[in-house]
């Protein structure tokens, strides 16, 4: 539980108030879901209500993707090979841009 929280803090991501699940998505997952949604919407199969729901979800995914891409601070950790092998935890260092 503590790990994703720490990660999102380190990445400077704010939880999306509309859908907390979106904030936890990786870029690739978010883009893939977005692609599926757009294709469904363009297919015109769904009802108006479904379309609007899909659009809202899509907009949250777009926000999430842009949030990832706009991230300026690279998260860099380092560890010695032997320490890594011994199971030690990496230490954070900056690669600020």
């Amino acid at each position: 539980m503590s790990k994703p929280a720490r990660k999102s803090t380190a990445k400077g991501t704010e939880p999306d108030p509309n859908d907390p699940a979106v904030a936890a998505l990786g870029f690739e997952e978010a883009v893939e879901e977005l692609e599926r949604i757009v294709e469904r919407m363009e297919g015109g199969e769904s009802s108006l209500e479904e379309s609007l729901r899909e659009y809202a979800r899509g907009a949250a995914l777009v926000r999430r993707c842009r949030q990832v891409l706009d991230q300026a601070e690279q998260r860099i950790e380092s560890i010695g090979g032997a320490q890594l092998d011994a199971g030690a935890e990496p230490r954070t260092q900056g690669n600020g841009g």
């Binding site: 990445k11 990832v68 891409l69 300026a72 601070e73 690279q74 860099i76 560890i79 090979g81 690669n95």
Partner: peptide, 19 residues
């Protein structure tokens, strides 16, 4: 590596393993 990574994709995390 770090310079290029920062320019290209700062959203990808990096773990440096020293050897």
């Amino acid at each position: 590596v770090l310079r290029t990574a920062r320019m290209r994709a700062p959203f990808v995390d990096i773990l440096v393993v020293g050897v």
